[in-house]
């Protein structure tokens, strides 16, 4: 079995994020770049599926030069090889273009499954896996809290607002996973050393057969008109509990007509 895992380098989840004044794009320089947390679950799921069924895991990432750290991290967790789509013309691509790049990187390489995290913690759109499924014409099995493979069939539990749905399809399929699916492993020292020797293929947009005019910021199909920091909240009242803290909150709720 051949499984692709798509990972994205994002600013550290615990850092404050902001848009750059000049071009209204996310300031990625001011925070450490880390593997999108939800993608760690995708890598773990791919590794577990391969450990149980045999095969190989290829990690795919689109991002600037330094995103190679994120590809390396997936390799040190145990993925076998990497594809890094790195090209200045891709900067500022919207989800529509990103999905085109990812679909091209997947196409024609014999993957049975491609696994994503269910969203990135920077843009938080949750649309790229569905867009990639649409582009490839593959089955979409997303928001999985459980993935099972048997023969050429893959079955997931799709998390819904009131429980889960069981969804089944023949491979190849696009899967995305939620954070409760597994516990991602930490790269071992051995894994980190081994990762240095694993092959990573670097590709440009042109090498993927994409027209430069259809990707990047200038080709985006949506644009930011303006943005501003939310006005700071007026300071509230803070009291220290002297045995009547609960009553005081109730009084506050009453003045605000909540009770």
């Amino acid at each position: 079995m051949k499984v692709a895992v798509c990972v994205k380098q994002v600013p550290d989840t615990w850092a404050e994020k902001r848009l750059r004044e000049a071009d209204a794009r996310l300031d990625r320089e001011s925070a450490d770049g880390v593997m999108n947390e939800l993608d760690e679950y995708a890598v773990e799921e791919a590794l577990q599926l391969i450990e149980a069924n045999g095969g190989e895991v290829v990690v795919i990432s689109m991002g600037p030069e330094r995103a190679s750290e994120t590809v390396r991290k997936a390799l040190s967790m145990g993925a076998d090889a990497g594809i890094h789509v790195v090209d200045d013309t891709l900067g500022g691509s919207d989800a529509v273009a990103t999905s085109a790049v990812i679909a091209k990187a997947i196409e024609g390489r014999g993957f049975d499954l491609v696994i994503f995290g269910s969203e990135s913690t920077d843009a938080r759109m949750s649309v790229v896996p569905a867009m990639v499924a649409e582009r490839l014409g593959w089955a979409q099995l997303t928001f999985a809290q459980k993935v099972e493979i048997s023969g050429g069939e893959v079955s997931i539990e799709r998390v819904t607002e009131n429980g889960f749905a069981t969804v089944t399809a023949a491979t190849p399929a696009v899967v995305s996973v939620v954070e409760k699916i597994n516990e991602p492993r930490y790269p071992s020292f051995k894994g980190i050393m081994a990762a240095k020797k694993k092959p990573v293929e670097s590709l440009t947009a042109a090498e993927l057969g994409l027209d430069a005019a259809t990707v990047g910021a200038a080709a985006a199909w949506s644009a930011v008109n303006d943005f501003a920091a939310r006005p700071p909240k007026a300071a509230g009242t803070v009291v220290t509990d002297e045995g009547d803290g609960g009553v005081k909150v109730a009084e506050f709720l009453a003045t605000q007509k909540f009770i």
Binding site: E16, K17, R18, L19, A24, A220, W221, S222, A223, V224, N225, D226, F227, A228, A229, R230
Partner: peptide, 9 residues
């Protein structure tokens, strides 16, 4: 923390 106005183009 940030309010953004956007348009589909």
């Amino acid at each position: 923390s940030t309010i953004v106005h956007s348009t589909v183009t």
